[in-house]
Computed example of a mutant assay.
Amino acid sequence: MGQPLRVGIVGLGAISGAYLSTFERLDSVRLVAVSDLDPDRAASVAAERGVRALTVDQLTTDPGVDLVLNLTIPAAHAEIALKAIAGGKAVYGEKPLAVTLDDARSVLDAGRAAGVRVGCAPDTVLGTGVQTARKAIDDGAIGEPVAATATMMTPGHERWHPNPDFYYQSGGGPLLDMGPYYVTALVTLLGPVVSVVGAASHTRATREIGSGSREGQVIPVDVDTHVTGVLRHASGVLSTLVMSFDSVATRASQIEVHGQAGSLVVPDPNQFDGDVQLHELGGAWRTLPPAAGYRDAARGYGVADLAATPAGVPARANGEVAYHVLDIMTALLAAADTGTTVSVESTCDRPAPVPLSDAPQAPEVAEVRGPR
């Protein structure tokens, strides 16, 4: 086995805790440094984890860091990624890859020019939930796929998040925030998308924070908070997508995939596992045992998978998939704005399937450099 990948984290907000917990049990990655806009927070995490607290400029140029894990707010994703790439580092970022397609393309182009890998969440699709469903589809369990539905209905993150402002600013909203989980799952299950139609609404001008030190504070809403659309996959499958911060709850399955010979219920794509249910023509619903994916996966497995992927082979949670997912979502917002069908100009290969396995093994560090 090679040496663990040395990771530096930029951004120590709410999501960082999940990555920090995962890295404690992954042999293939090793946290070496952290950075945050709040130096006291960085110092506290560094002391707790036994690593160094650095400034962003220090971390993105430090020779002891192989990969920068970018956990900043969406509006800063491209800026931090480009800093890291300029410092010769591989990059793995939280979703979305960037707020705009132009910024996302600049990150991919810079990574290619520098010869470093670019990866991006979500990595939930690498777990046993989506991967078992994918294997069932690929094995012909539902016959030829015809349609899919993906539904996410919540009252909004301001009820629980202590600093929810960015969810309601450019780069936020239910589609760009939660959509990556659902759209990435649909692309993983059914392949790339070629066009979209859609509609959206903006029901409230403000939201009230419901927890933390800012409880009761009112924040502005600058984005659409209910988005629905139909995605036409290159295969001809039609996927119906509903993303909302304006509802209370739903009893609809998170994702369903329907074929000529059967239907699948796919578990929550914001989680790594869950039951996959199959209803074959003439049969009844039954639960499929896990048959593919990383067992007991959690946020951070995409970093380990990227590191363990041989040079010249695309990692599963790669930048081109993230770019295509962002292209689909921005096209859907444009379609909702114009009331027209909008073509999705980019495409991507379906990521390689994940055989049923435990965590990726420690890689050769040099493999994070070179072609994505």
Rank of each mutant, 00 (worst) to 15 (best):
I328C: 06
R372V: 15
T287R: 12
S201G: 14
N270K: 07
G302K: 02
R286N: 08
L332T: 15
T60L: 05
L238C: 04
P145R: 06
L332N: 05
V193C: 00
A308K: 04
A334E: 15
L101Q: 11
R41E: 03
C348E: 01
M152S: 08
D246V: 08
P360C: 02
G88P: 06
D327P: 07
D296S: 09
Q58E: 15
Y168N: 06
E215F: 02
G88Y: 04
I9Y: 06
L175T: 11
A291K: 04
R232E: 15
V230M: 13
R105Y: 08
A335C: 09
M1N: 07
S21E: 15
T149S: 12
V193I: 08
E48L: 13
D275A: 14
V313R: 13
A334L: 15
E256I: 00
I15W: 07
L278Q: 14
A86R: 13
A148R: 04
S244A: 00
Q3H: 14
A352E: 07
L5H: 11
V183S: 10
N163D: 14
R299E: 14
E208I: 15
A311F: 02
S170C: 08
A110Q: 11
R350I: 02
R369M: 14
V230K: 11
R251P: 02
V68K: 01
S346K: 04
A42V: 12
S253E: 04
A43N: 09
E345Q: 10
V183W: 05
Y167M: 12
A104H: 10
H161P: 05
A261V: 09
P355H: 02
S201W: 09
S106A: 15
A147I: 00
H258Y: 01
H161T: 04
L190V: 04
A334V: 14
V125D: 06
G191R: 03
I9W: 08
H279P: 01
V193T: 05
D275F: 05
F166P: 01
R204Y: 13
D273V: 03
V34A: 10
V10G: 07
K83C: 09
R112K: 15
V68R: 04
E144H: 10
Y168A: 06
P4A: 13
A359W: 02
T154E: 07
A261T: 13
V218A: 06
T151G: 00
L190F: 01
S195E: 13
L108V: 10
L231I: 03
G212E: 03
A335E: 04
P4V: 13
G171R: 11
T60E: 09
N318R: 05
N70W: 02
A205F: 11
R112G: 09
S346F: 05
A292L: 03
R350Y: 00
P96G: 07
